[in-house]
Design a protein around this nucleic acid. Sequence first.
DNA 1: GAGAAAAGTCGACCGTGGTCGGTTTTTTTT
DNA 2: AAAAAAAACCGACCACGGTCGACTTTTCTC
Lengths: 209, 209
Amino acid sequence: MIGTREKKKLATRTAILEAAMRLFTEKGYDNTSISDLARTAGIGKGTIYTYFAGKSEILLAFCEQQLAFVSRELRDKSDPDASLLRRLLDLFMGEFRFISKNPEFGRTMLREMVFPKEMTVERSREIDDKYIDLLVPMFRKAQKRGELRTDLELILVTGHFYALYIMTVSGWYMGRLKTEEDVAMGMEFLFQQALSGLAPARGGEMTEP
Amino acid sequence: MIGTREKKKLATRTAILEAAMRLFTEKGYDNTSISDLARTAGIGKGTIYTYFAGKSEILLAFCEQQLAFVSRELRDKSDPDASLLRRLLDLFMGEFRFISKNPEFGRTMLREMVFPKEMTVERSREIDDKYIDLLVPMFRKAQKRGELRTDLELILVTGHFYALYIMTVSGWYMGRLKTEEDVAMGMEFLFQQALSGLAPARGGEMTEP
DNA sequence: GAGAAAAGTCGACCGTGGTCGGTTTTTTTT
DNA sequence: AAAAAAAACCGACCACGGTCGACTTTTCTC
């Protein structure tokens, strides 16, 4: 029978991810060893490496699920006609809530997403691209409503807000922002700053008069 | 003779850092083991852990030197009366040049600085604070010259630009920005965006009319 | 200066992530 | 259906970061 291999492969892959899902959330990322994963998934340790390039790539598979979840939540629970600021906060605070519930897990995830190793560059970019796909339509809408300049590269705008989100989460990991409210406020401040601009006036050149 | 202990401690600490300096830049961070470090420093492996909480803390000691270097360079080679944009680019591009010369090293450093583990939170914050001390005076000056709004928390402004710097470097690690010029341009774009603002008009409330 | 206390040193030891060559299972070729 | 090729599987093995309790050196106390 043809396709036996494909079926088994998919089954094994799923088994690994299920084991990861369980063990990571049960014991945390760092406290879950590859051997644990293999044992729980009912396969040999070495086999895992035919499915994933390393432990961190298993993490990224999660990251993808996580993003999918957050983006579904955004679709279901956030008013699509709210202001751009509101929409952005809904999205990123959803993301943050997940991270704050799994801090060690989230840290490793973010480290891998923001400063990927060669090994995981590709997957990181895939996830990144999904972010872009999620945000760009929001920006387009905001442009139509006059909330966002129309002369900007939307990829750079995405980067801009994503950067501020990262910085806020960093502030939380550093202990500068302690509660979820702190984070929400910090993020809102930064987003507003970005929207209104840091320079005092608009329109003129940045050079001397 | 009193003080013998103190002297030896300092000597040992220095020996470790010197060994780290040499081996990290010679073989890279990941390829340098704690045993290597110990051997080169002429001490036992376990001893290192009475001086540093872990491998990553040794890295942060470097980070501090690195920041000191960059800030000296900024003082010596960058026109203190240049525009805020120029000054920021001089600072962060100096930082980036170091990273681009030691990518693996820089990655671990950034990971630790932006998403620190409990172990290194404190040291990360110290370094962070030095960044703030470096930037805030620049912002004050810019405010006097009318280049920067005067109604902002300068810590948030620092965070804002630092965030954009991080994002640019991230873009480089992800392979979206390939050359130093790409990075310089990307960073300048983002900084300009931040200064001029993403929203089309200034002054009004962000809410519905 | 002798003895006790404190601080510093050390390398064998632990569990980890990841590798490797040999083995089994599936697919392709004849 | 037999043989050959390819792919998947495995666990012993490696070097690593980090720990630990036994040991040495310095300091304190009398």
